[in-house]
Design a protein around this nucleic acid. Structure first.
Lengths: 331, 331
DNA sequence: CTGTTAGCGCTTTCAT
DNA sequence: ATGAAAGCGCTAACAG
């Protein structure tokens, strides 16, 4: 029954014969061509792998990651690829999993510089595209200019402020939270965190503020609750901040809650800014950096599947709303 | 170089030889065993497939789907499986994609009774577990008793009301929105929608209300904005509703917004209930059905990978908060 | 339009 | 502890 190749190329066989074959197959309980054998023979799996970092299941709870994945999913859907999420848990066998995954290309969602799966990604020898960072030899990169964007939004957020603060993403893979004045950007091993800190630092410098006096509160997760509690702590400390630049709208939303709970005015007492222009930004009328993680997901998937492994700069915009001081009020 | 099987069973080869082999491999640029060949030979792919319905990319924007996926991801992570999302777009080749996907088992996130991928899932001949429905011969099922839960929350939401309404999930695969009094539950081809409508209908009957007088507003998507606009329409119609039971907390949140915008009181003028006990429910102090979609994702994945294909009833609880009338106020 | 042939790269079993 | 042989199920290429 060699001619059962009515499956793969329906055009190559007469409709009648094809029908007979399919019918016989159904009668015999043949489940169709075996995917493993097919991909062995064809040399491709029809599948795009997505590496999501240690906290895989958190990825689904994070609005930003979800938007990015939706973008990747769009492309997979269009091109008939499946989308494999590689469960990276932080355990030793992560690299092995990446080695063993049947994927034609890889998309990597932001990792730390020292993440042990990065060598595995390179060793895999498949086209790979990293989102945001770290840049990887031989792999593509899609990112906005985080430093420039942070500088721009920092300028607006910190304008007229004397004691700025930053609500930061995690600094290292342990994702511990902390409050540190003048935390050096270089201390962050997540490129996104590092670049945004550097940009906020630039902005402070532009305004004649000393970075050492800028308090950096590092959140271990990207969510309102923790940002709320860290902000509450910040507000209780001597020299309470009068401007808070967050790295996400979710964090900013938490900050807004804490500030209101403390009976303070936004932006009069404390200016706040977010990042991403998510629904939360609209809800709280936050000044934010607008970027489309969905488009970036699209770009990553497309580049990976096409093997276009260059560096792509994604667009961003500064969106000023009422959570920060206007030039007049700041003056 | 037959002995390169230092990869699979490190125990079966001396450490020295193994090191030499790996070293040589690195020098020759050998990327490690080919996944397709490995899975062909071993007869398993190390991969769990998740079918997410027509609107794949929406899945990532939907809090409920995300929680479910996180649950699936947990299990995959633990057991060393990859997780393949099968992009089902509504096009003709969907079934082919499912046939061709290299997965050891399938988890299916709620589909309509007449979804064309269901036969493909059965033909695939791999263990499959459906979440919520439809029940599929030979496949497992994990679900709460949606009808009973709807009856329970309907009883609370509609208590003391004279003109109840329902904010419903889509009724058919076209996902069109509509406003129809007394929409027959049987008209819904999504089992979840059908069962919940039936439960709300039961609740109305229990309270001596005529289902024909219950307005059912069908939302095409599970999100606040659309629920808000449909609720606004409901409130403007003659015989404005005095109780609204929604099928999700997101929808309920939209309803709350519309009700407040109309200058009405909750629950005095209009009682509102949600579903899922998501963060939105806490935020708006919504009466809701508490269930853990994450645990259900866990259960589906575990059952699928273990080939335990029975029907499992997941737990749910009615959680009464201030968005519905208390027995006294209703009386 | 249909039949035949060869081999994708691995792992399992058996023999040494 | 290591080597050899066989074959997983398919499809691309070629011959009829």
């Amino acid at each position: 029954m060699t001619a059962s190749y009515s499956y793969g190329q329906p055009a190559r066989v007469s409709a009648r014969l094809r029908a007979r074959v399919l019918d016989a197959a159904a009668r015999l309980g043949y489940p169709g061509p075996d995917p493993a054998a097919r991909s062995l023979r064809r040399g491709q799996a029809g599948c795009l792998g997505v590496v999501l970092g240690e906290q895989l299941s958190y990825a689904f709870e994070d609005v930003q990651a979800a938007a990015f994945l939706a973008g990747v999913a769009d492309v997979c859907g269009e091109r008939g690829y499946a989308m494999t999420i590689l469960p990276v848990t932080g355990a030793d066998d992560d690299s092995m999993r990446i080695r063993v995954a049947a994927v034609d290309a890889l998309v990597i969602w932001t990792l730390a510089d020292d993440d042990p799966v990065l060598p595995a990604v390179q060793a895999r020898g498949r086209p790979a595209v990293v989102h945001s960072g770290p840049a990887l030899a031989g792999a593509g990169l899609v990112t906005i200019d985080n430093r420039a964007a942070a500088r721009a939004i920092g300028a607006v957020t910190f304008a007229g402020a004397r004691r700025p603060a930053v609500l930061s993403f995690p600094v290292g893979r342990d994702r511990s939270s902390s409050i540190t004045p003048g935390l050096p950007p270089a201390a962050a091993s997540f490129p996104v965190t590092r670049q945004r800190l550097a940009g906020f630092c630039d902005a402070a410098g532009d305004l004649g503020l000393d970075w050492a006096s800028v308090t950096v509160a590092v959140c271990s997760r990207n969510e309102r609750a923790e940002a709320d509690s860290l902000t509450t702590q910040l507000l209780r400390r001597p020299g309470r901040p009068d401007a808070i630049a967050a790295m996400s709208d979710e964090q900013a939303a938490g900050a807004v809650r804490a500030i209101r709970a403390a009976g303070l005015q936004i932006p009069g007492d404390v200016a706040v800014s977010g990042w991403d222009n998510s629904p939360a930004a609209a809800e709280f009328d936050l000044t934010t950096i607008a970027q489309s993680l969905r488009n970036q997901g699209n770009a990553c998937a497309t580049a990976a599947l096409d093997g276009r492994l260059g560096h792509q700069a994604a667009p961003w915009t500064l969106l000023c709303r009422s959570s920060t001081r206007t030039p007049e009020s700041a003056a």
